[in-house]
Design a protein around this nucleic acid. Structure first.
Lengths: 355, 355
DNA sequence: CTGAAAGCGCTTACAG
DNA sequence: CTGAAAGCGCTTACAG
C-alpha cells in the first residue's frame, strides 16, 4: 500500500460518492461524463441523488486517475532548451507562446511548461535521467534554437507526437514543423534588388549554420541563379558580426557589390559601422537588407529593409499540426512553411545597373 | 477494458520489461527509482540485465501512472483568469511568470498553464463544469486582477494548496499570498512630501476598490494621521481617470492641495492635462506621485515620482510559499509582503509649508 | 437500466 | 535478496 503523502485531508473519491448514494462507481462515472457513450443509462432520480451527494461531499474527479484510465491527458507540452521567460524584457519565445496559447485555447488542452529538467545553467534535456518527462503530455511543441537532434530522434522513435516551431532536419526520422519561409522571403529581396538595378549582391550569415540559415542561403542562391547572377564563395559569407573587418569590407567593395543581405541586424549594423569609418553610408554607398526581424531593438530595426518572421502564426500552426496528429487526422510528416512579410524600410535604394 | 486510444504503437510498459528480464515489476521499479527507500534490494547482475532490457526496449516510465501511484504529480499550476500571453508587447504577467519559472526551476516541478477552461472571451473559471482541473497539479499559483472570491474559497475548502500573487482577502477562509507593500510605499511618499513642505496632500484612486487600492489608501491614511494631517473625504477620491474634470480639479486646488498621490499613471496624466488647460504644470503648480509603475508606457513613466512593484520577486516568493506548503513545512496561512522601491522622479518638488 | 470486475501502469508494504 | 498482490482513482466493456 502506498503511503500516499497526504498532508491535507483525504480527497473525496468516486467510491465515497458511490457508497453514499448506494450505487456503483460506474454509475457515478457515467453521470459525471454524460457524453462518454458508455452503455450505462441512469434514471433521472438516481442521477439527481448522485449529483446531490457529489455536491454534499464536494467531490471533484481526480484528473490524474482519469488520465490513466482514459489513456488521454489533455495536456500539451511546451519544451524549450532555454528558460521560457529569459530576460527582463524582450522574449524570443513570447510571440510563439502567444500563438500557442491562442490556438490551444478552446481545444480543451492545458499547456505544460517543462521547467523541472533544468540542470543548473545547462540547457535542459528531454531525457533527463532516462525518463521522458514529456510523457505527461499527449504531445509537445519544441521551441528554441538549440534542438538536440538525437533527442528529437529518440522522441520520434518512441512514437511521441511533437512538432517543432522552426524547420528541423534529421536524416533518420521525419520531423514535423511549422516554419518561416526564409527561402522565399530572401529570394524576394534578391529579386527586388535586381529590379532596382543591383547586379552584384552578397549574402552574409553567421558562422554557425542551422536550418534557418540554410533556408535563407538556399533562397539567395536559387534567386541569383535564376537571374543568371554570380553567387559563388565570394558572394556568400559565413562570418559572425565581430569577424567582419575593414579588410573584408574592402574585398567586398572591390568586388563591386552594391547590395548586401545581412542575416541579422548585428551583421547589418556592424557593416554600417565599417562603412562609416571609410566615410561611406547606407544606402548611399551600399544598399542593405536584413533577413529577419529581431524581437528586441524594435527601434533600431525600423529603417532597415527586411522581412518579418510570422512567429505568432508559427506557434498557432504548430498547435494545429499537433492536434491534427493527436486526432489521428494526420499520419505522415506534417510540415508547414508560413510566408514572411516584406517590409520596405529605407536601406535598399535604386542604382544604375553596373553594365 | 478501456479502448485506450492509441493511434501510435503501444507503449512499452514496466510489465514488458519485467517479463523480458525475468523479474517482477517491483524489481524494475526499484532499479529505476534507486532512492525510493523501498525494501527491495537487487543484485548488481540483475540490475544490469534489467537496465539492458530497458535500453533495448526503449522503455520510459509513464509519468501519469507514477503520479497516481505516488500520489504526487510534480506539477505546479499557474492559473490566470485572463490569457497568460495577452498583448503583442507588454505583458502584465511576464515579470511574475519569470520569477515563478526562476524559482521553480531546479525544484523538480513543471509548470502547468491552465488554458483549457477558456469559454470564448469569458474570463476563465477554475471550476468549469464541476470538475476542478487544477487538480492535475500538486498546488497552484493564482495570478491576475480578477480573482473570484467564491472560487478561491471553494478551492481552500477542498484543501487544495494555492498561493495568490497579490494580497487577497476572504472573510471565510485564510488565503496565502505574496504581495507588494503598497501601504508602506504609499506612506513613504506621504512622509517625503511632508518633509518637502507639503501639508495638504490628496489621494486619487480608481472607482473599483480592490485589496491593492485598500492597501495604498491605508498607507495614505495612517501616514497622514501620524503627521496630524487631514485625510477626510475631501482628500481621498475614488474616481476613474476619465471622471476627473475641471470642476473636480478646481475644488482640489481651492482646498489648497499641493501634492496629489495618483493611483495610476492614467490618473496622473489626466490631472496634468487638466492643469495644462488652466495654464498650470507639474510640479511647478502641483506636485504629484504615482503609486506604482505600469509595465507598458515605460517611457512615459520615467519623469514621475513613484515606486516600483517587485513583480518578479512576488512570483518567486509565491513559489517559495507554495513549495513550503507542499513539503508540509508550513501549516498556517503563509503571507508575505515585499517592499516596493521608491523612485524619485521629478514631479515632487519642495514647497514652502502653507503655514 | 444497473452492478461487479477488469484494466490503465505504476509503487510499495508485506510475505517468503 | 525477490515475488505476488494490493492499491492509487478512475473508465468502460461485459454480464445480468
Amino acid at each position: 500500500m502506498p503511503s500516499h503523502t497526504t498532508n491535507r485531508k483525504r480527497r473525496v473519491t468516486q467510491a465515497d460518492v458511490a457508497r453514499r448514494a448506494g450505487v456503483s462507481t460506474a454509475v457515478v462515472s457515467a453521470i459525471l461524463n454524460p457524453n462518454s457513450a458508455t452503455g450505462v443509462r441512469v434514471s433521472p432520480e438516481t442521477a439527481e441523488r448522485v449529483r446531490e451527494v457529489v455536491r454534499e461531499l464536494g467531490y471533484t474527479p481526480n484528473p490524474i486517475a482519469q488520465s490513466l484510465a482514459r489513456g488521454k491527458r489533455n495536456i500539451l507540452g511546451v519544451f524549450t532548451y532555454e528558460p521560457v521567460f529569459p530576460s527582463e524584457r524582450g522574449n524570443f519565445f513570447y510571440p510563439m507562446l502567444r500563438g500557442i496559447e491562442m490556438q490551444v485555447s478552446g481545444a480543451g488542452y492545458d499547456l505544460l511548461l517543462f521547467t523541472s529538467v533544468q540542470t543548473e545553467g545547462q540547457p535542459r534535456k528531454i531525457f533527463a535521467g532516462g525518463s521522458n518527462r514529456l510523457g505527461v503530455a499527449d504531445g509537445a511543441i519544441l521551441l528554441g534554437q538549440e534542438p538536440d537532434p538525437s533527442e528529437m530522434e529518440r522522441l520520434a522513435d518512441e512514437g511521441f507526437p511533437f512538432v517543432t516551431v522552426g524547420r528541423r532536419h534529421s536524416s533518420r526520422v521525419e520531423l514535423n514543423w511549422a516554419a518561416a519561409g526564409y527561402a522565399d522571403a530572401t529570394a524576394e529581396i534578391v529579386l527586388l534588388g535586381h529590379e532596382k538595378g543591383h547586379r552584384r549582391i552578397a549574402f552574409v550569415g553567421s558562422a554557425t549554420i542551422r536550418e534557418q540559415q540554410l533556408d535563407r542561403e538556399e533562397g539567395f542562391r536559387s534567386a541569383m541563379q535564376g537571374l543568371g547572377l554570380d553567387e559563388g564563395p565570394e558572394w556568400c559569407w559565413h562570418l559572425d558580426p565581430d569577424k567582419l573587418d575593414a579588410a573584408w569590407l574592402q574585398s567586398l567593395l572591390a568586388n563591386g557589390v552594391t547590395l548586401v543581405l545581412a542575416e541579422t541586424l548585428e551583421h547589418a549594423e556592424r557593416i554600417e559601422k565599417l562603412l562609416g569609418s571609410r566615410g561611406m553610408s547606407v544606402p548611399d554607398d551600399l544598399s542593405m537588407a536584413v533577413l529577419g526581424t529581431p524581437l528586441e531593438d524594435t527601434r533600431r530595426i525600423t529603417r532597415w529593409t527586411r522581412f518579418e518572421v510570422p512567429r505568432e502564426e508559427m506557434g498557432r500552426e504548430a498547435v494545429r499540426l499537433l492536434l491534427a496528429q493527436l486526432d489521428g487526422r494526420v499520419t505522415g510528416a506534417a510540415q508547414t512553411t508560413l510566408p514572411c512579410s516584406f517590409i520596405p524600410g529605407e536601406t535598399l535604394r535604386r542604382v544604375a545597373p553596373a553594365h
